[in-house]
């Protein structure tokens, strides 16, 4: 078990996203994004979208972009593999997709099933033209989020904010 981030990190992340005009939070449930999604559910100006599979969120964020709204796609690292073909919307369509990936198969992982996709997250995102911003410590979170938001919604890039298991704390199963 590594040292987990303080429990308040998701509040500052949520505040930065809302400040940048994010209104839609598409997600596949994960222990790592549960608190963030709870905040988005409770907030008057944000809406959550429960997905059946992660790739739907790429399409939903692209659809929101077409009409001038901003969404984020929150998922566990295993879902990145599901998204690969839909990320043609980033590499070919230049849609500014913002992903928040909570890692498994990373620092301190105990489940062998999580390693193959966990270790493939950054190669897959890189292959599909998505810029990655890795958060290893609590001090990384605010500047990495700010950089990712600028690259995405100002710079027009597809981005992934990667919350590592070193930051989140490895799960004891």
């Amino acid at each position: 078990m590594t040292q987990p981030a303080s429990l308040a990190w998701f509040r500052s992340l949520f505040a930065q996203l809302v400040e940048s005009g994010v209104t839609l939070f598409a997600y596949v449930p994960d222990a790592g994004n549960a608190a963030l999604i709870d905040l988005a559910d409770a907030h008057n100006e944000t809406r959550t979208v429960l997905l059946a599979a992660e790739e739907e969120g790429v399409g939903i964020c692209a659809g929101a972009d077409l009409v001038g709204a901003r969404g984020v796609l929150c998922m566990q690292s295993s879902g990145v593999g599901n998204c690969a073909n839909f990320l043609s919307l980033v590499k070919g369509g230049r849609f500014p997709i913002f992903m928040i990936v909570t890692m498994r198969g990373d620092y301190g992982e105990m489940n062998p099933w999580q390693y193959p996709m966990g270790q493939a997250v950054e190669p897959v995102l890189d292959a599909m033209g998505v810029l990655t911003f890795r958060v290893e410590t609590e001090d990384d979170l605010q500047p990495a989020t700010a950089a990712a938001l600028s690259a995405c919604f100002k710079g027009g890039q597809g981005v992934a904010l990667i919350l590592s298991q070193r930051f989140l704390g490895a799960k004891p199963f």
């Binding site: 839609l24 739907e56 939903i60 659809g63 929101a64 077409l66 709204a69 969404g71 043609s88």
Partner: peptide
């Protein structure tokens, strides 16, 4: 109209994103 030529399977999701973000259209 936004037509797709790839990303097979994304049409309903793109439409849902548009519908949620532009609820009066």
């Amino acid at each position: 109209l936004y037509t797709m030529g790839g990303a097979m399977g994304a049409a309903v999701s793109i439409g849902l994103g548009m519908a949620l973000a532009a609820p009066n259209a």
